[in-house]
Design a protein around this nucleic acid. Sequence first.
RNA 1: UCCGCGAUAGCUCAAUGGUAGAGCAAUCGGCUGUUAACCGAUAGGUUGUAGGUUCGAGUCCUACUCGCGGAGCCA
Length: 429
Amino acid sequence: MDGVLIKNLSAHVGEEVTINGWLYNRRGSGKIQFLILRDGTGLTQGVLVKGEKPELFDDAKKISQESSVRVTGVVEENPKSPGGFELQVNNIEVVSQTEDYPVTLKEHGVEFLADRRHLWIRTPKQSAILRIRSEVEMAAHEFFYQNDFIQADAPIITPNACEGTTTLFEIDYHGDPAYLSQSGQLYNEANAMALGRVYCFGPVFRAEKSKTRRHLMEFWMIEAEAAYFNNEDNMKLQEEMVSHIIKRVLKNRSAELEVLKRDTSKLEAVQLPFPRLSYTEAVELLQKKGHEFNWGDDFGAPDETVISEEYNAPVFIHRFPTNIKAFYMKPDPDDENVVLGADLIAPEGYGEIIGGGQRIDELEMLEQRLEEHQLPKEEFEWYLDLRRYGSVPHSGFGLGLERLVAWICGLEHVRETIPFPRMLYRMHP
RNA sequence: UCCGCGAUAGCUCAAUGGUAGAGCAAUCGGCUGUUAACCGAUAGGUUGUAGGUUCGAGUCCUACUCGCGGAGCCA
C-alpha cells in the first residue's frame, strides 16, 4: 500500500503524498471546498479551489460522507486545518461511494448509536477511546515485561466455577456442560508455580444480570500472580502498574485525551504510593461522615464513591472480613477475621478497578474452605495439588480493563471502552 | 430480579384534551479559507403495539414490547 498516515503528515511538508482513508465531512463555498479526511490515525483536510481544477472540483462535490477515498496532494502547514497540516489536492480516487450514511455529525441518542456501534466507532471520540484502550493494553504488557513477568494465558472454557459464586454462561462441550471463564486466577496460580511471575490477559464472562454503567457481560481482565509475593508486595506491584499505565497514556495519547476533553490534571495528580486504608478504617470513615454502615457488610457503589472522594489517587482498601471474600483468600495471621486482600478503588466515583490478595497456601485450610463454600472438592484436586507439591506464599490480582479505561478517559459508561460491548439485553451488533 | 424514567419525521426534540411543528440530515440552488460552515427553497408522519375513557387522545387510563438510569453482585 502506497501512502502516508495522517499522523505523519508533518514529516512530508512540500511533498506530494496520498492519504488512504474516508471522507469524514465536507465544508466550503461555491469556489473552494475542504474535504475532511480520516484514516484511523487522525483528521486532516484536503483543499480544492474551483478556478484551479474545475473538473476535479465538481467531481469532488459528489463524494458523500464516509465514502472511501485515496486523496493525493501536496502537504502544507496550516494552523486552520485539523492536525495543523493540509493537502492541496491534485487527485482523488473514489474507492467506494457511500449512499445514505446513517450516522450524521449531529447529536444522536444512546440507543441509535448502540444499534450502529459498527459505524459509531468511526467518530473521533470513539476512535480516541479505542486508541487509549490499546495504549493501556500495551503499557500493561510493557510493565509486566519490565518486571520479569511472563504472559501465560488461562483457558476460556472451564469445567467449573472459579469462585462458585457468580452466575456463569453455560455451553455444550460435546455433550458435557462447560462454562465460560469468569476469571483466570486459579490457572494463573498453577502457572506462577511453574514460571514464578505470570500474568494473563483475556476476556472473562459474567452472566449476572447487572445493569449499571460499570458492568459488561464480557470484559477483559489483566490478572497477575506471583510466587513468594505477600499482600504488601502485591499492592506495591498494583500501584506501580497503574501509575506506569497512566504515565504512558499521558505521554503518548495526549491528543486523544484532548478529543475527550479529559481534565488531565486528575491523572497527573496520581502519585506513588497510593493511600492504604484498612476495611475497619474505611468503615469508621463512612460512619464519621454520617453514613449508616455496619462492620461485616460489603461496600456498595455509593460507599466506594464516598471513600474515593477523600483522595486524588486510587485508594487500597485492605483486610476485608473473611466471610465476604472468596474461599481462597488468606486470613491475616494477626486477625483471622480479616483476609490479606485489597481492592483498589479508582477516584472520581469510578469504583473498584482491581481486586486481589494473598492466597491460602496451606492444604488443610484450603480443603476446609472448599467445604465451607460447598464447592465440589474433586473438581479442585488439581488446584489442591499446588499446595501439596512445593506450596509457597503467593499473591495476585485482577484488573478490569474497561473500568480503568473509563476512568482514564473520564467516561460516563464502560460500554464505550470496548469496540463491541456485551451488555444485559444487548449483544448486537 | 427490584425501583424510577422514557418511546412523536432518517436524527435530536417541541406541541393547555381541540388543524402534529422546529433544527439538523436528504434533494435543488447560492457563496473563494471552511471548523458540527453559512443562506434560500423542496420533500419528509398509521405519534412503539393492543385496548379503553371522551363529541374529540401525541396528550388521560390499562396491559404489553423495547430502551435508558439506578440498586444488588462484582472487575
